[in-house]
C-alpha cells in the first residue's frame, strides 16, 4: 500500500510537472522541470525495498551477516538517487543560467521558438518555389532571433576580429 501511495505521488508530480513545462513561459519551464526531477527521484526511491527508519549504517566493530542485511534500508538506490539529485542540480542550475542569459539578451519571456521565416524556400534553381507563399508567422515564433545573430556575429560590430 505504501508503494501505491508513493506511485500516486509520483504520478501527481509527473502530471503537474508535465503540465507546467508545456505552458509557455520560462519560469514555469524551470519549475516544471523541478517537479519532474522530484518525481524521478521518488520513482527511483520506490525501486528499492522501503524500510521504515533503519538507515543503512552498519554499526562499528560488528560483523554483519546476511540475515541482518535485510533489516537495513536498501543502500544502493540511495546512492543512485544521490548521484541523480546532484546531477539534476547541475543541470537545473545550468538551465536557470541559460534562461537568465536569454532574458538578458532578448528580453523575451516565452519559451524559445524557432524563427519561422528563416526557413527559406526560395530556391533560385527551382522556378516553382517562387510561387510558394510563406505562412504568417505565428505569435510563438521568435522573430528577433535571426537579426540579433547578425548583430552579434558581425565582427565589425564586435570590434575585435583578431
Amino acid at each position: 500500500m505504501t508503494a501505491i501511495m508513493l506511485a500516486v505521488l509520483v504520478g501527481v508530480l509527473f502530471a503537474c510537472g508535465a503540465y507546467m513545462i508545456l505552458l509557455r513561459g520560462q519560469i514555469k519551464l524551470v519549475l516544471g522541470l523541478g517537479l519532474i526531477t522530484h518525481a524521478v527521484n521518488l520513482a527511483l526511491f520506490g525501486t528499492g525495498k522501503l524500510t521504515r527508519g533503519a538507515p543503512p549504517i552498519v554499526p562499528h566493530e560488528q560483523q554483519v551477516t546476511a540475515a541482518m542485511a535485510g533489516q537495513f534500508a536498501d543502500p544502493l538506490p540511495q546512492a543512485l538517487i544521490l548521484t541523480a539529485i546532484v546531477i539534476s542540480f547541475g543541470v537545473t542550475a545550468f538551465i536557470v543560467v541559460l534562461i537568465y542569459r536569454r532574458d538578458a539578451l532578448t528580453g523575451s519571456d516565452l519559451a524559445p521558438g524557432e524563427l519561422a521565416t528563416v526557413i527559406n524556400t526560395s530556391d533560385p534553381f527551382a522556378p516553382f518555389s517562387s510561387r510558394m507563399v510563406m505562412p504568417e508567422a505565428a505569435d510563438d515564433y521568435d522573430i528577433l532571433q535571426f537579426e540579433l545573430d547578425e548583430v552579434y556575429d558581425n565582427p565589425q560590430a564586435e570590434g575585435a576580429d583578431e
Binding site: V86, G90, A93, V96, V97, Y100, A104
Partner: peptide
C-alpha cells in the same frame, strides 16, 4: 568540486543580479 560549482553559480548570479 561541489564547493567550486555551487559558489561559481551563486557568485556569478548574484553579481549579475547586482549589475542588472
Amino acid at each position: 568540486v561541489v564547493i567550486g560549482m555551487g559558489v561559481t553559480y551563486l557568485l556569478r548570479l548574484s553579481e549579475a543580479a547586482e549589475a542588472v
